[in-house]
Amino acid sequence: MPAPDILVRAHELTKRFGQFTAVDAISFELRQGEAFGFLGPNGAGKSSTMRMIGCVSPPTGGELSILGMDPVADGPAIRSRLGVVPQEDTLDVELTVRENLLIYGRYFGLPRAVIADRTDRLLDFVQLTERGNDQVEPLSGGMKRRLTIARSLINDPEILLLDEPTTGLDPQARHVVWDRLFRLKQQGVTLILTTHYMDEAEQLCDRLVVMDGGKIAAEGSPRELIDQYSSAEVLELRFHPSEHDQAAEKLRDVPAERMEVLADRVLLYVPDGDAALAAAGDLGLEPLTSLVRRSTLEDVFLRLTGRRLED
């Protein structure tokens, strides 16, 4: 029997498309009340995983149990208790905002009065009350995304699945969405989210897995991952292109936990960035710019995969 507070359990879960393995034997557990994230670049297999959890993509191998049920045999029963925000909006743009919620509520067999009541609350929550009777088509990307989030909550779901909730939005629209998701989190919502934005993962996820090439590279809270795979601080140095390689070579004499030489910068992973900068100065190096910052999940990803998250 699964532990009572584990809502999703995946064991060596695999998805293949023909010969291509999109999700490669991943194992994870989702606990009640947590915000769990998949962080990885495009093509990592995040959406494929989400679609399997959403019971619209039969696993090719491994085990998957959602709310104690089997996604293939009990798809409709499971989906009736999930909320889904897919990567691409599937709103009916020819209908109004309210009609979209009405139709979606009916998919769950909810009575009209219940839908009407929830629609008011949800539109208020996603700040779309004034647009309730407007057609969806002309709404901005951020508004559509918020409407999709409102729609995903119409059935009062037990787990909320969010596939790249803010991809493609401008920074301001992203912050509005983040704010709403953060409130959901505060209300104790259990959510699974995928993202390729490390700041999104850091802000919203209690626990996350770093995914790359269909595999899970690491797992933990953002803090744990940073502590485990990176240093307290990072010193970023930028040199004149003609001096870049030479400088990188010299920098090996500065004591550091790790050094990454990128095309345009050198990153030194150190406990104390200022001290490292002073040490670089003592070696006679004169960077064009220097920056001391805290480690982020981006650094974790770089360490784990040798590549950057966002390109």
């Binding site: 507070d5 584990i6 009640q32 409709p76 609350r121 929550f125 779901p157 037990e158 209300q187 259990t190």
Partner: peptide, 27 residues
């Protein structure tokens, strides 16, 4: 924020027949 979240999740189907879904015509 208004409470938009009301239901507590449950791994065990809360009531007997939680796996039951409406018939094909209703769907």
């Amino acid at each position: 924020a208004p409470a938009v979240w009301q239901r507590q999740p449950a791994v065990e189907p809360a009531a007997a027949g939680a796996r039951r879904v409406p018939g094909p015509v209703v769907m």
